[in-house]
């Protein structure tokens, strides 16, 4: 019996030792708990997004990236489409962003997901500390709702 291919990939990034940077892993844990038994969905959580993840991305129809950001207001949840980067970074060892990964997927494997979105949560604090700040904790229901509706629409083929 062969394993059915995953249609959707949830790919989170973050460090749980740096306070709100842990929001990605937190949401990945939540997704694994709620969708982990669905063969169409795969959840991965990493400290960094590295090039070896590209093969996983190239193999799915939809990818939802989850990360924290310092470019938004603390606790602000934004769900936005992601396009492949037009220019790649010069350095490549430790970390790529969602656009870089999509571009690398296209260039290396000639394949990229039909749907790609980035769910970002604005960080209030990135100090060395385990646990999320109050403002980011308060934003979790909205982030969870984004994950649920996004996956639902992708799995229904919308």
């Amino acid at each position: 019996m062969t394993t059915p291919p995953n249609r959707c990939l949830i790919l989170a990034c973050g460090n749980t030792l740096r306070e709100d940077d842990g929001v990605g892993p937190w949401l990945a844990d939540w997704a694994q708990e709620h969708f982990g038994n669905q063969p169409e969905i795969r959840v991965l959580s990493r400290h960094q997004w590295t090039p070896d993840l590209v093969e996983d991305i190239a193999a799915v129809q939809s990818v939802l990236f989850i990360d924290c950001t310092i470019d938004s207001a603390p606790g602000q949840v934004i769900l936005a489409p992601v396009e492949p980067a037009s220019a790649m970074p010069r350095m490549l060892t430790h970390h790529l962003n969602a656009s870089d990964l999509l571009a690398l997927s296209r260039d290396l494997y000639g394949s990229q997901p039909r749907h790609a979105r980035l769910l970002s949560v604005g960080a209030a604090s990135l100090h060395i500390h385990e646990g999320l700040s109050d403002v980011v904790t308060a934003s979790l229901p909205k982030a969870i709702s984004c994950i649920e509706t996004t996956l639902q629409s992708w799995l229904q083929g919308c």
């Binding site: 090039p51 070896d52 093969e55 010069r90 350095m91 490549l92 260039d107 290396l108 494997y109």
Partner: peptide
């Protein structure tokens, strides 16, 4: 040119080599 002398330049010039590197690391 340093603007292309990086792994993405390799991917563009010899994608099979880039894939091999990614796959071995993986």
């Amino acid at each position: 040119d340093p603007k292309v002398r990086h792994i993405f330049g390799v991917v563009e010039a010899r994608p099979e080599l880039g894939r091999a590197g990614v796959a071995l690391r993986r």
